[in-house]
Design a protein around this nucleic acid. Structure first.
Lengths: 160, 160
DNA sequence: AGTTGAATGTAATAGTATTACATATCAGTA
DNA sequence: TACTGATATGTAATACTATTACATTCAACT
């Protein structure tokens, strides 16, 4: 049970890796990793925060990739559909996946102060599957998010 | 591990019970269970579906309780804060709690066809707490939702 | 070159939620 | 009873999130 997001790591390598993985996956699956899609993934990889669709749109507009909301939503839909990005429902925002295409049911920890979001893997899906089976419900996807304070904000809060 | 929502039950008694519980809780805690708040809870209790804030606002307006969004959002905030209602993040919608004030971390099963929502209890919080502890995150609230097909839509879908 | 399906560009609109500020109501107390 | 402070309500305006619709462009394949 690991989590990516609150620890330190070589982030520029992190970005490069993820882009390479995405590119390889798209080639292998005959998907088009277009410039807009690539840029959106890069924006989201820049730090472990969730960005709203309009934050992304704003940056796309700056770079001349169209000007209307569908530009951002289409790229996000593509990236979410193929597992490169997750939507954080609690925030109506989007974040790069930390474990692309490793089969996982992600769980997110959202800091209500600094807005950082960490992705963890949990066996939550197993439990939900059991609960669902008991009532005959057929799960297609799961959403697991926790809101609270990240390590940094917890210690800072304690000293206030 | 039970679930309320997909089974049949005496729903009018269900509503009366919940209102009585809410009223008693508010009296005991010196909270004002005002007419608007009561009506909103009644709307949400009417069936085991989630209603959007604007659905609720529409009904409030019909009955003469104000006309602007804050009327609905304030009542919902109150009901959520005190545990009578949950927000379903996936749907940006609200649903009456099936187990008010029994200490619980609810999990919801959302049918993507008929829109029914069932509330289950799962030990998901335990798992999340463990994952959180591993990285020093301090959980304040959890969101667990599953989207898929309810028993009814599963069998109907199978015959199509 | 022609066809097809995917991707893009843009305008318009729909749906969800908050801020700000004025007014009213209620509980407790001088 | 009248005052006070806290809570709740009424409403306008605005902000934020997301989709529909339709025209156009591009890439891959024939």
């Amino acid at each position: 049970m690991d989590a990516v997001g609150f620890d330190k790591h070589d982030h520029s390598a992190c970005i490069d890796d993820m882009i390479a993985v995405a590119e390889a996956y798209c080639v292998a699956n005959k998907l088009q990793f277009t410039p807009t899609r690539r840029r959106v993934l890069e924006f989201l990889l820049e730090d472990h925060r969730a960005l709203g669709a309009y934050d992304i749109l704003e940056r796309l507009v700056e770079e001349g990739h169209g000007s209307q909301p569908p530009v951002a939503y289409r790229a996000l839909d593509f990236l979410v559909k193929h597992g490169f990005v997750h939507k954080i429902e609690r925030l109506n925002a989007y974040i790069a996946c930390a474990h692309p295409h490793e089969k996982h049911s992600p769980a997110f920890m959202i800091c209500r102060l600094c807005g950082s979001v960490a992705e963890a893997s949990t066996p939550a899906k197993k439990l939900l599957d059991q609960a669902a089976k008991d009532v005959g419900f057929n799960i297609e996807c799961t959403i697991v998010e926790a809101e609270g304070l990240c390590p940094k904000c917890t210690t800072e809060g304690a000293s206030v």
